[in-house]
Amino acid sequence: MNILLLLYWEFCKIGLFCVGGGYASLPWIQAAVVDDYHWITMTEFIDIFTISQMTPGPIGINAATFVGTKIAGTPGAIVATLGFITPSIILCLLITYLMKKYGELSVIKGTLNGLRPAVVALICTAGLSFIWLSVWDTETIPTNFADFDIKGIIILLIAMIAVRKKVSVITLLFGSGIVGLVLGLII
């Protein structure tokens, strides 16, 4: 089979079966690209994981891009990414259509009423684990709160004030990056 078609099809399958998002999708990707097809080695797979932790973008897209590039250059990267998101597009548009048609049913409304507070809680959890990461450099609850990173606290405080002053999100991201660089130069 044409290698581009194979890439597309394999990543289509990964996109369809990786439920749970984020790290939950790792085993699926690993099973296909490392174990079944040997497109990349386990070391390279761990590298992708490391890169993904510090670069923007979902790990799934990062893995698809990396593997695609390695197998068939930039066309490979594009085809693998397209394959990955094809099931998402179909499923999401289907759900949107169904919601339009049946969204007024009380069972659906009830379910969503239960989900909304859950999402609020999950956003708060993400916020807290990001505070741990920014100030204490750990992904879980810090074991020693006295061992904090002063630079993290300063940038976070400045950013909090900026958010209160209604600075636009993108300006804020750029600005915090610059503050980080400046602090790195002087401290």
Binding site: V163, L172, G177
Partner: peptide, 26 residues
């Protein structure tokens, strides 16, 4: 990318910026 101190500091700064937004939204 992985080992440059200044790149790390820019990323760290942007991470703190994102943290502030998530806290605010939460």
């Amino acid at each position: 990318f992985a080992h440059n101190y200044y790149v790390q500091m820019i990323l760290k700064g942007m991470q703190c910026g994102a943290t502030a937004v998530i806290i605010d939204v939460g």
